[in-house]
Amino acid sequence: TTTLTYTDEEEARKAAEELKRRGITFTYTKRGGTWEIRIK
Rank of each mutant, 00 (worst) to 15 (best):
K30C: 04
R13K: 14
R22D: 06
E17P: 00
A16R: 05
E18I: 09
G23A: 03
T25Y: 12
A15W: 05
R21G: 06
L4R: 05
K14Q: 11
T25H: 13
R38N: 12
K14R: 12
I39F: 12
T5W: 12
W35T: 03
E11L: 08
R21F: 07
K14G: 06
R21Y: 06
E17M: 11
E36A: 03
G33F: 10
T5I: 15
R13C: 03
K40F: 15
R21S: 10
T7R: 08
E18V: 07
G33Y: 09
G32E: 13
Y6S: 01
D8T: 13
K20H: 11
R38F: 10
G33I: 08
E9L: 05
L4Y: 14
L19T: 01
E9V: 05
T27Y: 06
E36L: 10
R31M: 12
E10R: 13
T1D: 13
G23F: 03
G33P: 11
Y28A: 06
A16H: 02
W35N: 01
G32K: 06
W35P: 01
L4G: 02
R13G: 04
R13L: 15
E10K: 13
E11T: 11
A16F: 08
K30L: 06
Y28L: 15
T25D: 15
T5M: 10
R31N: 14
K40S: 14
E11M: 09
R21A: 11
D8E: 08
A15Q: 07
I24Y: 10
T2E: 09
T3W: 08
T34L: 14
W35K: 00
T2A: 10
E10Y: 12
I24W: 05
T27E: 13
E9G: 06
T5A: 05
E18Q: 07
E9N: 03
T29Q: 10
A15F: 11
F26W: 01
E18S: 08
Y6N: 00
E11Y: 04
T3L: 14
G33K: 11
L19V: 01
L4V: 06
E17I: 10
T7Q: 09
R38I: 15
T3E: 03
A16T: 05
Y28H: 03
I24L: 08
A15V: 14
T3V: 15
L4K: 04
K40P: 14
G33W: 06
G23C: 02
